[in-house]
Write a protein that binds this DNA or RNA. Structure first.
Lengths: 109, 109
DNA sequence: CCAACATATCAACGTTCGTTGATCGACGGA
DNA sequence: TCCGTCGATCAACGAACGTTGATATGTTGG
């Protein structure tokens, strides 16, 4: 196994970051380019402190980055962050070529 | 947009299902083929009712299916379930070809 | 330097979520 | 049919999480 892979805990943190409705929507809105906070605020009709809270979660998880430009702060998706989640999902395969059926009678100890 | 896509709420539910440590591990263990509950139980060193709780979450989200065989119940990944999550992540692009910088001064209303 | 604005942080609160132990239902073997 | 086993369900509990309103920090323009 060549390790370009994210540590498991960090990967889980990314899934947790995305798996919340508000943040899910933020990620959607960030698709295609950066947005400033106030823009997201009106788009999502979310209170300022609420948005700030969620953006921090996404940032801590490495999903987004922020950039200050004067009075405003712009958030953007971190290139590759979502790709690493995709990679995990891609490695998990529903079926194997073949899996021997359990020998009768002794599943558990 | 051709709609082979999962409704947004269902997709979010899948992310929520996977974004928890125990369930994250269950999904990992199910990679490559089905496993019976007691197998997972000893693998993950989890109490029986705890495991049952998490397997239900995964099942409700459409991530896994269950199959009874005599005394045992086997859980397996639903083919395509994780692919739909991958598809979402693939659609979300960090950068657009070009995004006009905001005209000076009037970000918010 | 002060006022107005954009954003972050904090404390308090309620809700949701995962854990545990107990009980129940289903199945198979003796 | 009775007993032992596998698994699901339930109620009670505590912990983690998201929301809100208030306050703090940083920036621009007058």
């Amino acid at each position: 196994m060549s390790e370009t892979t994210l540590p498991s805990a960090a990967l889980l943190q990314r899934f947790q970051a995305v798996a919340e409705e508000t943040r899910f929507e933020i990620v959607r809105r960030l698709s295609g380019g950066e947005r400033c906070v106030c823009e997201l605020q009106s788009d999502l009709d979310a209170a300022q402190s609420r948005l700030s809270f969620h953006l921090k979660k996404l940032k801590d998880a490495g999903v987004v980055s922020d950039r200050r430009d004067g009075r405003w702060v712009y958030y953007a998706l971190v290139p590759g962050a979502l790709e690493e989640m995709r990679a995990f999902l891609g490695e998990v395969k529903p079926e194997e070529t073949w899996r021997a059926p359990r020998v009768s009678g002794d599943c558990c100890s």
